[in-house]
Amino acid sequence: MTMPAPPGDQNPVDREPAAREAWGRQPPGPTASPWPVYPMPMPTPQPRNGMGVTALVLGIVGAVLGLFVVLFWMSWVPALLAVVFGCIGLSHARRGLATNRTMALVGVILGGAGLLISAACGLFAVVVVKEAADDVRAKADRVKASAAAEEEKKKAQEKARHLSFGQSYTFENGLKVTVAKPQPFTPDDFVLGHAKGNKAVEVTVTVVNTGTERLSVETGLPNVNDAKGASAELVIDGSGRQKVITGYVLPGKETVGKYAFSLPPDAADKVEVEFSPDAKRWPDAYWSGPN
């Protein structure tokens, strides 16, 4: 059985390649997406403001600490760090990495001010300490000089109180005392304080009142030491030649005391006499020399 030919004497088999060609052709270029394409947003970098904030905080701390004189030695550390961090913050701001340029700049300024304050306070402290040390040293030198002068004065006074027989010494109350060279003394038969074989001497003490008021002699007895430094014994006899100074001495007047002492023969070549008109107030003066 023969199939009838399609109209127009066209062969469907012959049209298939043409149809495929018509439907299969595509324009050059990227393949169209069935979904709409939107541009992807780029992430915005976060500003690096930490250095500026740190510089500001440290600058405030350094400046405040520098205002306290006792804390100036602590202020230079935060102040220096404020300058360093502030400079880094300014560098970030210039490169667009930070947005707090003003804060970093203020931190640098405060840090610099803190350094200046710290340096000024340090200089002030050095000056104050130096002046205090100089003052202490000057006071110590004055005290030392005063002590040395006092010691020299005591030595001079001590030297002035050591005299030879016949010289005079004036005590601070105005009594001038003179001790004459001891003279031989012969006790009578009724004698106390004189051993047989000893040498008896008589000591004469003259006291003159050089002041304007009457003055008392509280201790009228001298002390006599022999050549060996031993105290000689006071001689008392019945001759009545000894006289003890007692009572008051009127202005411009004098009183004379006479005392006898017994010296051992081996220590009688030199005598020292100690005397003070008031032993509680004035130290003794000393008269010495060969007997």
Rank of each mutant, 00 (worst) to 15 (best):
M1S: 14
M1Y: 05
P7I: 13
N11E: 13
V13M: 14
R15S: 15
A18H: 07
A18M: 13
R20G: 10
G24K: 11
R25N: 12
Q26I: 12
Q26H: 13
P27E: 08
G29H: 02
P34K: 09
P39W: 00
P41V: 12
M42C: 04
P45R: 10
N49A: 09
N49H: 08
M51Q: 06
A55S: 15
A55G: 12
I60D: 00
V61S: 07
V61G: 01
L65A: 03
G66T: 08
L67I: 06
F68A: 14
V70T: 11
L71A: 15
V77G: 08
V77A: 14
P78S: 06
P78C: 06
P78W: 07
A79P: 07
L81Q: 01
V83S: 10
V84C: 13
V84P: 09
F85N: 14
C87S: 11
C87V: 15
S91W: 09
H92W: 11
R94I: 07
R94K: 15
G96K: 11
T99Y: 08
N100Q: 13
N100F: 05
R101P: 01
R101E: 15
A104N: 06
V106L: 14
G107Y: 04
G107N: 05
V108D: 09
L110D: 10
L110H: 02
G112Q: 03
L123C: 04
E131H: 13
D134P: 00
D135S: 13
V136F: 07
R137V: 08
A140D: 12
R142T: 12
S146V: 02
S146N: 08
A148D: 15
A149N: 07
E151G: 14
K153P: 00
K155C: 02
K155D: 14
K155G: 08
A156P: 00
A156Y: 01
A160I: 04
H162D: 08
S168L: 03
Y169F: 15
Y169L: 03
A180Y: 04
P182L: 11
Q183Y: 01
P184K: 11
P187F: 00
P187K: 02
D189N: 09
F190M: 10
F190K: 11
V191T: 15
K196I: 04
G197M: 06
G197D: 08
A200E: 01
V205M: 03
T206A: 05
T210Q: 05
G211N: 06
E213S: 06
S216F: 00
V217H: 00
E218C: 01
T219N: 15
G220E: 06
P222H: 14
V224R: 04
V224S: 05
D226V: 09
G229W: 07
S231C: 01
A232F: 06
A232M: 15
V235L: 03
V235F: 04
G240H: 06
G240M: 08
R241K: 15
Q242G: 09
I245S: 05
T246S: 14
G247K: 08
Y248N: 09
G252Y: 03
G252R: 09
K253I: 00
E254M: 11
S262W: 07
A268Q: 09
D269T: 10
K270D: 11
V271I: 15
E274G: 12
F275T: 02
W282E: 12
W282C: 02
P283T: 02
D284L: 03
D284K: 10
D284Y: 04
W287Q: 11
G289H: 02
N291Y: 04
